[in-house]
């Protein structure tokens, strides 16, 4: 099944900081809940791992990530990830991510456009959940990205509001994809669809 996602997340850090994280595929992958880069083949090719558990379906996707495009001027990169899991699911993600300036110099916006194709058990069981799950995973990704950016930006600018805020309330870092959280999102969505306002 195919899910197309277009998301924007405001990040309380300046553009340069964000762009640096974005350019570093290993750091970027580290923001993805449950994901890590296990091998760097060359500048453009990496091997990685993502662990996911949704209800009856568990998967450990191992696969390749290829850096397809890198636009310094436009502050945009394009990645293609392809992976498979042993128990019968495959996934691919064509992701374009960029940053643009925010309202103030200490803020920017992370923009992601992706095309995710999932096959196998996950697509069979999870058809109805996929949009909710993708939303949640991306939100967690953005939160992690934001936390990382704030930490880097805060270190570089100890006087900034971010540094002080971070010191008092360290941002929540999502380490793995949590099945309970996913179920909660799905249930919440179900109820908001049932009782929510008409579209």
């Amino acid at each position: 099944m195919q899910v197309k996602l277009e998301k924007e997340y405001p990040i309380p850090a300046n553009m340069d900081t964000c762009w640096h994280i974005l350019c570093d595929v290993e750091q970027l992958a580290g923001c993805m809940p449950g994901a890590e880069i296990t091998e760097r083949v060359d500048e453009k090719n990496y091997v990685g791992l993502v662990k996911v558990k949704v209800g009856p379906a568990t998967a450990a996707f191992t696969g390749k990530i290829e850096l397809l495009g890198f636009d310094e001027a436009g502050k945009s990169i394009r990645l293609m990830g392809k992976g498979a899991d042993k128990s019968g699911s495959t996934a691919s993600m064509d992701l374009t991510a960029s940053v643009r300036a925010g309202a103030t110099p200490g803020e920017c916006v992370l923009i992601g456009t992706s095309d995710v194709i999932i096959n196998g058990k996950f697509a069979q069981f999870g058809g109805r959940m996929m949009n909710s799950v993708s939303d949640m995973i991306l939100q967690q990704f953005a939160d992690n990205f934001s936390a990382k950016a704030q930490a880097v930006y805060g270190q570089a600018n100890p006087a900034s509001a971010q540094a002080q805020a971070t010191a008092q309330h360290p941002p929540k870092v999502h380490k793995g994809i949590n099945a309970f959280a996913i179920m909660w999102v799905v249930i919440k969505d179900l109820f908001s669809n049932l009782f929510g306002a008409k579209k």
């Binding site: 096959n119 069979q124 058809g127």
Partner: peptide, 11 residues
């Protein structure tokens, strides 16, 4: 089936 041929709803 979805566009990739994943059968939907086989339970």
């Amino acid at each position: 089936f979805d566009a990739q041929g994943n059968i939907q709803g086989n339970t």
